[in-house]
Design a binder for these strands. Structure first.
Length: 476
RNA sequence: GGGCCGUUAGCUCAACUGGUAGAGCAGGAGACUCUUAAUCUCAAGGUUGAAGGUUCGAGUCCUUCACGGCCCA
């Protein structure tokens, strides 16, 4: 058993007075900085520059009196040369008999091998943590999808692309924050545990607060609280956080997912669209995006009605109730579920016939009021609201509107949602009196948006499954 | 929910129409002072996802289940 071998080594080390789990190792430099300083060294060239690096032992090539070791840290990989004549008998033998996966600290002098690989000739070394479990295959890495998701630490150890992907994700989020911070947006935190959920079309998770003796919901969106902050005069706010939706898993859906929402007073959905173009193209440039999607502004804008009519021949606005729409679609050879509400049917036409064809970023604008209970009525087109969803790579990744700020109309919209609930839509939005009361205080004209960060990372990294871009995706 | 594919050593994969489960890497012993998927020698490593069934005999065929992947709804 390999584990037994490793445990036997652990005991042997302890008997030799070596602490296999020391407390710290100060002064470590990233391996990439060693490469940056010396990668122009000629083949076989020597330096007298010493470095201290640390990381996981990933490979070993022994040659009797010398050996080459590969040490991996977050910034990359660096080759270590161990020599008996440099280190001395015992330190050399112990270094060379470490297990792959052990964490080591290396002090060494930079030089270039005969074949031109930058290498540290170890002058001293320290075991920093013993690894008791064998690592994945050093060449093939870890390929089993299930193990990669369930044991992401192994994926990160074995697969450099995974490490780079999650570093990329972090850079995406950092760039988003930088862009918003630079434009006067204030980052805020609103409740995850909510007495009433709202701001989205979804089923919630329910939990229970023991000492309050009441049920609470995990938020499905941050929208209503953020708009209350606009009422409060914070003018430009944003939140990046997890939302939770109690629905099925798919390549585009994880039950908990990261969303950016931002709201801007005195702006409308046209302003927000421009900001989204700028934000995403900024982030793409910051991370050096070089993929197939053209994020450069301006992005195409097409009305929801035209988009659906182009794809299906059905004019949804000419068939403004459930039965008429089902009939019109049937004449075009499209079966719709007759039990759905009218807004659900429109949403179905959009997601099944339009969404997957939208490769480069596209704004679908001006939605029926029935689909958008929190959006302001369109200034010129009756029956519509000022709303857009943004699509790219065949996937929705953002949703925005000119915010409804008339409290009486908001109340009426919530009442309409109640009717949809009564018609069987279990995702319709509940009546939130606290929110309406806040609107009664007076909310300035406001534009707001939600951007799916996981999906944005999928687009920017070319990944086709949300599970690839979430560190620990939900598994059955 | 439906269809298809997959699950074999720690990891990556073999095993023909049913006939003693193999290899590489990792791990063990040894050789080797510029290798980089190092090389060479030797030995070891398995409840073939689970449970049933058919058969003289099942990794292989059948049924059910679990988990995963892809596609569809």
């Amino acid at each position: 058993m390999p584990d037994d071998d490793r445990r036997a080594k652990l005991e042997r080390l302890r008997e030799q007075g070596v602490d296999p789990f020391p407390h710290a190792f100060p002064g470590v430099q990233p391996s990439a900085s060693v490469h940056a300083a010396h990668d122009d060294l000629e083949d076989g060239g020597e330096t007298d520059v010493d470095y201290r690096v640390a990381g996981r032992l990933a490979a070993r090539r022994g040659h009797g009196g010398s050996a080459f070791l590969d040490v991996v840290d977050r910034s990359g990989r660096i080759q270590i040369q161990a020599r008996r004549d440099v280190l001395g008998e015992e330190p050399f033998d112990r270094l060379v008999s470490l297990d792959l996966g052990d964490i080591v600290g290396i002090d060494g002098t930079a030089f270039s091998s005969r074949r031109g690989e930058l290498t540290l000739r170890a002058t001293d070394w320290t075991l920093l943590a013993k690894s008791l479990a064998p690592p994945p295959d050093k060449f093939h890495g870890l390929e089993d999808t299930e193990t990669r998701y369930r044991r992401r630490e192994l994926d990160l150890i074995a697969n450099e692309e995974t490490r780079e992907l999650f570093i990329l994700r972090s850079r995406v989020v950092a760039a988003v924050r930088r862009w918003l911070d630079d434009r006067g947006f204030l980052e805020v935190e609103t409740p995850v545990l909510q007495p009433l959920y709202g701001g989205g079309h979804a089923r919630p998770f329910t939990t229970h607060h023991n000492s309050l003796g009441r049920d609470l919901y995990l938020r499905i969106a941050t929208e209503l609280y953020l708009k209350r902050l606009i009422v409060g005069g914070l003018e430009r706010v944003y939140e990046i956080g997890k939302d939770f939706r109690n629905e099925g898993l798919s390549p585009k859906h994880n039950p908990e997912f990261t969303v950016l929402e931002f709201y801007e007073a005195y702006a409308d959905y046209v302003d927000i669209a421009t900001k989204l173009e700028e934000l995403v193209s900024f982030v793409a440039a910051e991370i050096g995006y070089g993929g197939e999607i053209d994020f450069s502004p301006p992005w195409r804008r097409v009305s929801l009605r035209d988009a659906i009519e182009e794809a299906t021949g059905v004019d949804v606005l000419a068939h403004r109730d459930r039965d008429a729409l089902v009939t019109a679609a049937a004449q075009r050879g499209i079966d719709l579920a007759p039990g759905d509400t009218w807004p659900q049917l429109v949403d179905e036409l959009l997601s099944k016939h339009v969404e997957r064809e939208l490769h480069d970023p596209t704004f679908i604008v001006d939605y029926p009021v029935e689909l958008s209970p929190l959006a302001k009525t369109h200034r010129s087109q009756p029956g519509l609201v000022e709303r857009f969803e943004c699509f790219a790579g065949g996937m929705e990744f953002a949703n925005a509107f000119t915010e409804l700020n008339d409290p009486d109309e908001q109340r009426a919209r919530f009442e309409e949602q109640r009717r949809y609930t009564a018609e069987g839509d279990d995702q319709a939005q509940p009546y939130d009196e606290d929110f309406v009361r806040a609107l009664e205080q007076g909310m300035p004209p406001t534009g707001g948006i939600g951007v799916g960060i996981d999906r944005l990372v999928m687009l920017l990294s070319g990944r086709r499954s949300i599970r690839e871009v979430v560190l620990f995706p939900a598994m059955r």
